[in-house]
Simulated scan of single mutants.
Amino acid sequence: MTIQNPIDWSKLPIPVDDGRASHLEGAELPSMDLHATDGRAVDLSRLAGTAIVYAYPLTTKPGTPAPYGWDAIPGARGCTPQSCSFRDHVVELEELGVDHIFGLSTQDTPYQQEAVGRLHLPFALLSDESLQLAAALRLPTFEVSGMTLLSRLTMVTREGRILKVFYPVFPPDRNASDVIAWLRSR
């Protein structure tokens, strides 16, 4: 499955590593339940095995405009390509020992369920609508149109501890391949 309107990444501002995720590698995940699009409550700190948690700002429904100035925000654009990248590489990630894959945003679960169906995602999206996880981990965020959104990053976790953080993530459609390369190098 491919994305119908490819994004020309060369025309978007490239995010820079501002250090706001440098404290995450080695950190323990806090114990808290996050609502998942498959109806579960997921506590990332209690997951057995290896998990990939990719944080993204937001998805927009077809025909719904992105927030004003979206393309001018470094790293904001590309949530659908990032999700589709993990979708398209799910078997390869599982073969490399990944037990769980989750997308994470501050959008509510009903909104996220639309994206799971539309994008045919074989994994759940998690909602941090209350920003509890973002606050507990001090995840990088930004504000636009009155919303606080997660900056794009990906965490590889094992048994409740963050092993690796990819930040900033750009271009987003290459994120799963970058994670795969890292897993292979271990």
Rank of each mutant, 00 (worst) to 15 (best):
Pro30Thr: 02
Ala176Asn: 03
Trp182Ser: 06
Trp182Val: 05
Phe142Ile: 07
Glu114Lys: 05
Arg77Gly: 00
Ser130Trp: 08
Trp9Ile: 09
Ser10Glu: 15
Glu94Asn: 06
Val156Pro: 01
Ala135Phe: 14
Pro6Tyr: 02
Thr64Pro: 01
Pro57Trp: 10
Pro30Tyr: 06
Trp9Phe: 10
Ile73Asp: 01
Asp178Ala: 13
Arg158Asn: 11
Leu58Lys: 06
Arg158Ala: 13
Pro15Cys: 14
Pro110Val: 07
His89Tyr: 03
His89Met: 11
Leu121Met: 06
Asp173Leu: 11
Val116Thr: 06
Leu93Tyr: 08
Ser185Ala: 14
Pro171Lys: 11
Tyr54Phe: 15
Arg77Met: 13
Pro172Glu: 02
Ala134Trp: 10
Pro74Cys: 04
Leu47Glu: 01
Leu34Cys: 05
Ile180Asn: 12
Phe170Trp: 09
Leu93Asp: 09
Leu119Asn: 07
Glu159Val: 02
Pro6Ser: 04
Ala41Asn: 13
Thr148Ile: 14
Met1His: 13
Thr80Asn: 11
Arg77Ile: 12
Leu121Asn: 04
Ala72Trp: 03
Arg174Met: 10
Arg40Met: 06
Arg138Pro: 01
Leu58Cys: 05
Tyr54Asp: 00
Thr154Gln: 05
Asp128Ser: 10
Gly97Thr: 03
Trp182Leu: 14
Ala134Ile: 11
Met147Lys: 05
Pro6Asp: 04
Ala136Glu: 12
Ala27Gln: 08
Lys164Met: 13
Arg158Lys: 13
Val144Trp: 07
Thr148Val: 09
His89Arg: 15
Leu29Ile: 02
His100Cys: 04
Thr157Phe: 14
Val42Ser: 04
Ile180Asp: 05
Arg152Ala: 12
Leu131Val: 02
Pro168Cys: 10
Thr157Trp: 15
Glu143Phe: 02
Gly117Asn: 10
Thr80Tyr: 09
Arg158Gln: 14
Ala176Trp: 03
Gly78Tyr: 04
Ala55His: 08
Arg152Tyr: 08
Ala36Tyr: 04
Pro171Leu: 07
Pro172Val: 01
Thr37Trp: 11
Gln113Lys: 04
Tyr56Met: 11
Gly146Leu: 11
Ala124His: 03
Arg46Glu: 05
Pro62Phe: 09
Ala41His: 08
Ala76Glu: 00
His23Gln: 11
Arg152His: 06
Met32Phe: 13
Thr154Asp: 09
Ile180Tyr: 12
Ala55Asn: 05
Met147Asn: 02
Leu24Pro: 08
Trp9Tyr: 10
Leu150Ala: 04
Ser145Pro: 00
Tyr111Trp: 13
Leu163Ile: 03
Leu96Cys: 08
Gln112Cys: 07
Val91Asn: 05
Gln112Ile: 01
Met147Thr: 00
Leu96Trp: 01
Trp70Tyr: 03
Gly26Ala: 07
